[in-house]
Design a binder for these strands. Structure first.
Lengths: 224, 224
DNA sequence: CCGCGCACTAGACCAATGTCTAATGCGTCG
DNA sequence: CGACGCATTAGACATTGGTCTAGTGCGCGG
């Protein structure tokens, strides 16, 4: 039974996915790797591979930013250890990730040995954060916490619809992209609003955004 | 003509306003101080006191979060030096503030001498940031920049309406709070959407949020 | 095997949102 | 002063959003 370690790698950047996979091999040897570059494929991967041992999750994928995906997946696979991978390396962000249930946090600036050490530690069952980050006994903001709980309770379709709403799409566009009727989307929207405890889509967007992380605007000096 | 230094202090926390005013006195001696605790009073203060020499602006006031207020005011009073005051003290946030045209940045954790030094430097015409923060030649994210430009172009009423939209209020509620008819709000909304280059209120909210700053969720250890 | 709950689908209907047209008032420039 | 631009106001109308009701398919416990 005891198959090889199975790891899901969710990151929209192919090169970085490859680097992560390389680190995985260096850490656990042979491993089953499932790659996901979009929210949809991530959802599929999580549903299809219930036996996965680890999830590496980028904080910034197209259509999913911040901790919403983490909250959602944590609720469906409580036992799936998840490591957040992000260009953002602020202690506050790292702490929030752990408080949202992540088992580890790897800044994208990390070297290969660091990444391997982190993966090893998390697979072994412990929580890993970069050196020098203290996991003080802070609590999440109350609204952020309750919004995370509510988001986690959404069904897969509802979650996708909500994220599309949070991109500013109209119901009609969402319906077209998902290949269903607009009436269906409206029904989903109503269910989402009820679960989030809000009255309209704007407030739903605010709930999603409360889980967002300030993105590193990182383009450095204006060319050479 | 040369009246006393006139300073506008915008912060919703009375105690902190008082501390800031104290620092002002210690720095420039007697000064005309105009206090603002809400967005509306801030707008009024800026319009009524065209001769103000300095604006101290909290990053987190009820109804206005992040750099939207800074962008808006910078566009109306290009020559009014503005110092951002915030609990957030991350270098990235400080850099963003300066790139949005702030003349200084004072973390709320600063000591009194630091605050006085900062105010003195800015009044003297230079830019002040906390020790150890390098103002590298970074550029703002393109969308953040263009959204800031668009926000700055709104009229006072339009700006207030937009921020109320960004709180999730319905047109009807906004109309009631501002004491005008709902039709008026709708007209404002249309003008806002046009200026922001978007199609609906949800996208307008996203534009505002692109100027937001991650708020420090700072409640520390769960009581003693 | 059957019934039950739930996710998903959808149409009809009502409420909120957004557009178009237009009137008023105010400051500026000629 | 008078013409013009612009912010503000508002009503009529079109579009989008959200609720209600209801049918279908699927998994789970009796």
């Amino acid at each position: 039974m005891d198959a090889r370690t199975k790891i899901i790698v969710a990151d929209d950047h192919p090169l970085f996915r490859e680097a992560l996979i390389h680190a995985i091999k260096g850490c656990v040897g042979a491993a089953d790797v499932v790659e996901a570059a979009t929210l949809e494929s991530l959802q599929d991967a999580v549903e299809d591979h219930v036996d996965a041992d680890l999830l590496l999750l980028d904080l910034h994928m197209p259509g999913v930013t911040g901790f919403s995906a983490l909250a959602y997946i944590r609720n469906r696979r409580e036992m799936l250890p998840t490591v957040i991978v992000s260009a953002n390396d602020e202690p506050a962000t790292i702490r929030r990730a752990i408080q949202h249930g992540a088992s580890g946090f790897i800044p994208k600036s990390s070297g290969m040995e660091t990444i391997e050490a982190a993966l090893g530690a998390v697979i072994a069952g412990s929580v890993w954060v970069p050196d020098g980050v203290a996991l003080e006994a802070t609590r999440l903001d109350q609204k952020e916490q309750s919004n995370a709980d509510a988001l986690a309770d959404l069904t897969p379709h509802q979650f996708r619809v909500l994220l599309m709403i949070a991109e500013g799409l109209m119901n009609k566009q969402i319906a077209y992209q998902l290949g269903v009727s607009e009436a269906t989307i409206k029904a989903h929207v109503t269910a989402i609003l009820k679960k989030l405890g809000v009255n309209n889509r704007t407030q739903a967007v605010l709930a999603v955004k409360s889980l967002d992380v300030e993105q590193k605007a990182f383009n450095g000096t204006a060319d050479g």
